[in-house]
Design a protein around this nucleic acid. Structure first.
Lengths: 181, 181
DNA sequence: AGCGATTATGTATTTATTTACATATTCGCA
DNA sequence: TGCGAATATGTAAATAAATACATAATCGCT
C-alpha cells in the first residue's frame, strides 16, 4: 500500500485553494510540486472520478475552442472536512528507504573496486542536476521576498529540498575525496 | 513498477557473500540493511523461488532440531554474471520523492496555523528517534576501526544515513525557530 | 513440563504505481 | 494553412509492495 491513499488528500489540498482540472494537477506534479509528491495522470483521473462519486468534490465542464471540454473540480464540504481531518492526524510511519545507489555501494564493499568511483561520479552528476533545477525554481518563484511570505509552506519545502541536495552532494564529495587517498 | 525488480539484485548481492535463508534476508532488511533497502517476507520468499527456477541461485536444506528444515540459497554462475552486469549498469532514474510531511506543510501554507508547529514537533521527534537508532548501530558495528575497512561500503552508507538525519534535523530546527519569531 | 518469543516458510488479497495503449482538440508559429 | 507541440482525458495491463491470513517447530526460560 505504501501510502494509505495520500493522493486523495493531496488532491483535496490542491482543490481547497482553487478549482483545477486533472491536467492542471498533472502539471503541478510535473512542476513545482514534483519534488514532494508525484502521481501519473493514469492515477489522477480515476482518483478524481472516485472522489466525485463519494461526494468529496464536484465537477463542471468548461469549453475550450470549438468542441474541446475540460473538467474542473470543486471541493465540497465533505471534502473540506476530510482534508482537515487528515491534516490534524499524525504522520504515517516513514516509508522504508530504498536507495539503489547505497545498495550498490554496500554490495561493492571493496574500496579498490573501480566501479565505486564510477558510481560516485554518476550519483554526483544527477544530484548536481537536481540542485540546479531546484535553485532555478527558487529564483523564479521566490526572488521577491513578498512571495516567500505569501506561499510560506511552499518556500519552506523548496528551501528544504535545496538543502537536502547540497548536503547530499557535500557527503558524496567527502567520500569521493577519501577514495582518492 | 517503481524499481525494475531491484530486489532480485539485492538478493544476488547478499548471496554473493554467503549462503542465506529467506529468513536471514528478512532479518537483514529488518536490521542493518533496513535503512537502504527493505522488502516484506511475502515478497522475499516468492522471489527466491523464481530465482531458483531461472537458475540464478540454487537451494539446499538444513535441519534444525528434530524436524524443522530451513532452506539456504547459493548463488550460481549465472547469478554472479547478472549481478556483475547490474553493478556495472548506470543507476535507474531517481524515484519520485513522496514526502507526506512536506506535502502537509505545503498545503497548510499559513504561517500562523497552529498545526504547523505540531507537524514540526512530530517530524523532529521521529527523526531524532531514527538518528539515535543509527548512531547506536554505528557504535555497535564500527567502533573498531578495523571493521570500517573490512566493511567499507556498509560503513560509508551508515555514515551517510546518520548525516542525512543530522541535516534534516538541523533544517527542521531552523525552520521551527523561525516560526517562533 | 509448559509457555511465550523467535525462527522459519509460505499464500492470498488488496492497493499503489508504472508503463503502455488510445484518442481528439487547440495553440503557436512559420 | 499546415504542422508539431501542448492541452486534455481516459483505459488496460503489468509490476511492486503492503497487509492479512496461515502453519509449525524450536529456543530460552521458569
Amino acid at each position: 500500500m505504501a501510502q494509505k491513499n495520500v493522493l486523495k488528500y493531496v488532491v483535496l489540498g490542491l482543490l481547497s485553494h482553487q478549482d483545477l482540472t486533472g491536467y492542471d494537477i498533472k502539471k503541478l506534479f510535473e512542476g513545482e510540486l514534483g519534488d514532494f509528491w508525484y502521481s501519473n495522470h493514469s492515477q489522477i483521473y480515476p482518483e478524481l472520478k472516485k472522489m466525485v462519486e463519494s461526494g468529496l468534490i464536484s465537477a463542471y465542464d468548461d469549453t475550450v475552442g470549438q468542441k474541446m471540454t475540460k473538467t474542473y473540480y470543486t471541493i465540497q464540504p465533505q471534502g473540506k472536512a476530510e482534508l482537515a481531518d487528515w491534516l490534524k492526524e499524525p504522520l504515517n510511519a516513514l516509508p522504508p528507504t530504498r536507495d539503489e545507489f547505497s545498495m550498490k555501494l554496500y554490495l561493492l564493499n571493496d574500496v579498490n573496486d573501480p566501479l565505486i568511483k564510477k558510481l560516485f561520479a554518476e550519483e554526483i552528476a544527477r544530484h548536481e542536476e537536481k540542485l540546479q533545477y531546484l535553485q532555478s525554481r527558487w529564483k523564479l518563484l521566490f526572488t521577491a521576498k513578498a512571495e516567500q511570505k505569501k506561499h510560506y509552506g511552499h518556500a519552506m519545502i523548496l528551501r528544504q529540498a535545496i538543502r537536502r541536495e547540497e548536503w547530499r552532494l557535500q557527503w558524496l564529495r567527502e567520500e569521493q575525496a577519501k577514495l582518492e587517498e
